[in-house]
Write a protein that binds this DNA or RNA. Structure first.
Length: 976
RNA sequence: GCGCGAGUGGCGAAAUGGCAGACGCGCUGGCUUCAGGUGCCAGUGUCCGAAAGGACGUGCGGGUUCAAGUCCCGCCUCGCGCACCA
């Protein structure tokens, strides 16, 4: 037997009876007004044009250029999609899922009286657009604009109710100007840890001019101990540059030769490759731009409690920031040096029986020439001297990639010859180097407590080092490290005893002791690093920065913004062999010397400067685009404060709370620690500097699921067109293509997987409304689900039946009756209204659609469809299927836009039922049912229930012990 | 290892502790049709039964309860994220 699989049948009735076929002309002649894909397409195009022409989706601002209609506006509600990269490969059916979801929410809110801001834009800078341009040999601006047009056309067919006046791309010159302006705000700011904030917290960004004023006045001392009044201009600039929130520094960065650019930590995968393109990434010391996101680490964690985000995403951000509390402790090394360690368990200091430093640790630049007397044979690695042992171990570690080092959890290392003094016991302890300690975390050195840390214990076992338990393990704990709670033991020294304390008290006691002695401090360490912000690519915002003869950065004045991208003949990045770790970044902007060398008058007459040739990462544009939707036409401010307060401010509507922000932000989970972290950071800087009143950019985040699909490979592992695969029981896999066996896998949709279905194909075969309803009916919006084109006919049948309930397919006449619906129908209508409202509010569109189908099926069964009933159904369905509902609405004689018609409200009186079904159980199993009045009493219901045939049969003569009654819905008889 | 989430028909999925499988796809039968398709009607968890009816059934094992997909305890499997983070 052979039948078609899901993807294979892209041609339902309407498309099969396509133009030209005899059957179609016959069918079309019989039923010219049937709701086919062709008629749906005609209706959809017509209404879309009209909505455009009439400005139906225009959203009024309270003031300013876009204020038309503001007097009639309801409560503000700001809804957003994560805007897309216009990538050039076009859309597949998975892409619009979230856009349809937000459109349904937006339309529903509009019909519920809200003033809904919903706009759409394009994140058009960055690697994907640039890679596509390089491949096609065209300028990125050309390909980007073409791609935007394609996407816009594909999305327009969906009928999304976006305000067209507010659309833009991050590459627009007007937008770039403000992106650069915000960069300069960050550049011209420093973080004052002690400054109070309007929200009651402490610590905020302040303009750098205020720092200068305080230094000038002598009310603040320079942080590095230098005396401000004695510094010359250049020294002063260097000092200020150290404080800026955007700063240049030479640090280890992620260099990706295959892409020809450096990357942020967030853009490098766990296995050390670029997230885009999957090229190897190498750590290199390079001079690059950074943003001081670490200054905001605590606020980025704390304020997660203010916002309504999925716990998963909040956990990912907390994890990424990686805050850990502990202490830094200095250990004296015999012979004069010092090692500073970070530990989260200062209470275990008495159990520190050795130390370990990372192979890259500077302590190892100098090690003793001889092994100390009595050095354990196992510690030397067979080398004659510490110098040889350390050099060999360092070389071995350097040869391994970070991935290899982390994959191998066996403990290797070598004694450095150094001995350090444990500050509480006064005992000398050996210092090892081992690659399980990482230079990039903490101080790159640890105090090893094998009694309280499993890794240290493993190492101690391998090198026969002593193990001291400082927290009493529970009864039955065999050897090994004890990392749990308990009472402190073995921790008494000449000056201090922690014995008998619990772990938190011991921590407090030891930190106090260390601080008193000046050998340690309680501190907090983060995994988060500052954000590497420069890229050596063409397609991004140029830095609004020039350098003078001192090679120090100077802000380009606001009046000269935007700094546009120069038209270079060759915009392709200078890339290298993917594994060429020693290559050097070469920004394409550096090739245009006329642009790089510039004469400017910055207040002291015209002088020559050199422009910064880096560009910003594409995250820059997505860090603040929500603010631009508020009014892209403004020229004078980054965002009008009044508009920001209205749309985003704290308590701007009933649900927005103290944090404020966009009311609903929908997008995939993949940006959890990239865009969403960066945007929160920028927003907080803007908040500190007084440009916005909201503390967070996105108050509620919703992660939509992904649409996935089956793909099929043949025996050679090549993908075959999924649409042509047939089920075939004759082969083991159950599937064949072109007569040969193929194998099914499940995952992403993609052109290369040959399982892609485009929205255009869906419009062609079903129309946009069917496509919308189908995507929303497949399951909850936040759950991933497999695509099944064939199943969309269910949604089409639903809309077709609705159409037929109003319009005669042969004559086109409206067939509804104006007489009132019967009581059963009226009750169903109101019950449906109540249920659908609940489902819509909770964004459970799949179950809302199910309720609507039930009502529609009921109406289909009536001899004549009452107007009142079908009009309620049309209004309820309007956010999901805006075109067909608007068309029917008009045919039913209504002139106004459905979008401005109130969403139906159920009449409570109609929700009361005459009789209800009472379930009669025996021992919890349903044995009978009764139709009873809702007001029935317990006693009467019990009597009725006991008398039912089902109960008598199930009791089979047994006596009744108790009867549980939940009138009027349930009776449960419990026999003895 | 840690964190988050999920396991329910052939498939997508529904179920304030109170009728498991709403709704849709698919499938089966019927009506309409020269015919296919569309449309309409009926059926469709598994097993026993002609039927009435009954037994079983929400990953596995326990528990609480008159009553458990739902609550509690212990496991298993899968997905996602993090991970030698001191």
């Amino acid at each position: 037997m052979r039948v078609h699989t899901q993807q294979s049948d892209l041609t339902p009735s309407s498309a099969q009876d396509g133009p030209g076929s005899r059957a179609d002309s016959a069918a079309a002649a019989e039923t010219p007004y049937r709701y086919t894909a062709a008629l749906a397409g005609e209706i959809e195009a017509r209404w879309q044009e009209r909505w455009d022409a009439e400005g139906t989706f225009h959203t009024p601002n309270p003031t300013g250029a876009l204020a038309d209609g503001a007097d009639a506006a309801g409560e503000p509600f700001f809804i957003m999609d994560m805007f897309p990269y216009p990538s050039g490969s076009g859309l597949h059916v998975g892409h619009p899922l979230g856009y349809i979801g937000t459109d349904v929410v937006g339309r529903h809110h509009r019909m519920s009286g809200y003033n809904v801001l919903h706009a759409f834009g394009y994140d058009a800078f960055g690697l994907p657009a640039e890679q596509y341009a390089v491949q096609t040999g065209q300028h990125p601006r050309v390909t980007t604009e073409a791609n935007i047009l394609t996407m816009r056309r594909q999305l327009k067919r969906l009928g999304l109710a976006h305000d067209p006046r507010r659309t833009f791309a991050t590459t627009d010159s007007d937008y770039v100007r403000w992106t650069q302006w915000i960069f300069l705000q960050i550049f011209d700011a420093w973080y004052d840890d002690d400054a109070p904030r309007p929200d009651g917290g402490t610590g905020r960004a302040r303009p750098i001019a205020e720092l200068v004023a305080e230094l000038d006045a002598g009310t603040r001392a320079a942080s590095d101990g230098s005396v401000w009044s004695e510094l010359d201009d250049v020294q002063r600039r260097r000092l200020l540059d150290e404080h800026r929130l955007a700063y240049v520094s030479e640090t280890p960065v992620n260099w990706c030769p295959g892409l020809g650019t450096v990357l942020a930590n967030e853009e490098v995968t766990v296995d050390g490759r670029s997230e885009r393109g999957n090229f190897p990434v190498f750590k290199r010391n390079l001079r690059q731009w950074n943003m001081r996101i670490t200054a905001y680490a605590d606020r980025l964690i704390e304020d997660l409690d203010l916002i309504d985000w999925p716990e998963k995403v909040r956990a990912m951000q907390r994890n990424w920031i990686g805050r850990s509390e502990g202490a830094q402790v200095r250990f004296e090394v015999i012979g004069g040096q010092e090692i500073e360690v970070f530990t989260t368990r200062p209470d275990t200091l008495f159990g520190a029986t050795f130390m370990v430093v990372a192979p890259e640790h500077p302590l190892l630049d100098e090690v003793p020439a001889e092994w100390p007397d009595g050095t354990h044979a196992r510690w030397t690695g067979g080398h004659r001297s510490p110098v040889a042992a350390v050099a060999t171990y360092r070389a071995q570690s350097a040869a391994r990639t970070a991935v290899e080092r982390q994959a191998d959890t066996s403990k290797t290392g070598v004694f450095t010859g150094h001995l350090a003094l444990n500050p509480v016991t006064g005992q000398p302890i050996p210092v090892f180097t081992a690659d399980y300690v990482l230079m990039g975390y903490g101080t790159g050195a640890i105090m090893a407590v094998p009694g309280g840390d499993e890794r240290d214990f493993d190492f101690a076992q391998a090198y026969e080092l002593p193990v001291v338990h400082t927290v009493a393990p529970p009864e039955g704990h065999e050897g090994g490290a004890w990392t749990g709670d308990g009472l402190v033991v073995n921790s008494a020294g000449p000056e201090l005893s922690l014995d008998g304390l619990d772990v938190p008290s011991a921590k407090a006691a030891i930190v106090a002791w260390l601080e008193e002695r000046g050998i340690g401090t309680g501190t907090v360490t983060y995994r988060l690093r500052d954000w590497l912000f420069s890229r050596q690519r063409y397609w991004g915002e140029p830095f609004p920065i020039v350098y003078d003869e001192h090679d120090l950065p100077i802000a380009v004045p606001e009046s000269l913004l935007p700094v546009d991208l120069p038209d270079v003949p060759d915009y392709s990045p200078r890339t290298y062999a993917a594994d060429d770790a020693h290559s050097t970044p070469e920004p394409p902007l550096g090739r245009n010397l006329d642009w790089v060398d510039v004469e400017l008058d910055l207040g002291d007459g015209p002088r020559r400067y050199r422009r910064d040739t880096n560009t910003m990462p594409n995250w820059a544009g997505s860090c603040w685009y929500y603010l631009n939707y508020l009014d892209p036409s403004r020229r004078d401010v980054v965002v009008d404060p009044e508009l920001e307060r209205y749309w985003m401010g704290p308590h701007h509507n009933a649900t927005s709370g103290a944090s404020g922000g966009v009311d609903l932000y929908v997008g995939g989970v993949e940006h959890a620690v990239l865009h969403l972290l960066y945007a929160r950071f920028w927003h907080k800087v803007l908040y500190d500097l007084g440009h916005v009143s909201s503390m967070e950019p996105f108050r509620k985040l919703f992660n939509q699921g992904y649409i996935q699909a089956y793909a099929y490979k043949d025996v050679r592992g090549q993908y075959v067109p999924a649409a042509e695969v047939v089920e075939d029981e004759a082969v083991a896999s159950g599937f064949t293509w072109d007569g040969q066996e193929v194998f099914r896998e499940y995952g992403k949709i993609g052109k290369s997987l040959k399982n892609s279905v485009t929205p255009d194909e869906m419009y062609e075969a079903f129309g946009a409304d069917t496509f919308r309803v189908y995507e929303m009916s497949m399951g909850p919006l936040d759950v991933s689900r497999p695509w099944d084109t064939r199943a969309a006919v269910g949604s089409q049948r639903f809309l077709q039946r609705l159409w037929r309930n109003v319009v005669d397919e042969v004559t086109g006449a409206v067939v509804v009756t104006d007489s009132a619906p019967d009581l059963e129908t009226a009750r169903l209508v109101h019950r449906t209204i109540a249920e659908v409202r609940t489902e819509m509010d909770a964004m459970r569109f799949n179950t809302a659609i199910a309720r609507l189908i039930v009502l529609n099926n009921h109406l289909t069964g009536l001899a004549q469809v009452p107007r009142e009933a079908v009009e309620a159904l049309i209004l309820l369905l309007a956010p999901l299927a805006p075109h067909i509902t608007q068309e029917l609405w008009e045919r039913l004689g209504h002139a106004e836009a459905l979008l401005r018609t109130p969403y139906p409200v159920a009449d409570p009186a109609m929700l009361v039922e005459e009789t209800v079904t009472c379930v009669v159980q025996v021992q919890g199993k349903v044995r009978d049912r009764l139709e009873v009045p809702p007001s029935i009493g317990d006693a009467e219901l019990t009597e009725l229930a006991l008398a039912t045939a089902g109960v008598q049969r199930a009791l089979d003569g047994r006596a009744v012990r108790t009867v549980i009654v939940r009138a009027p819905r349930l009776v449960n008889v419990v026999p003895v």
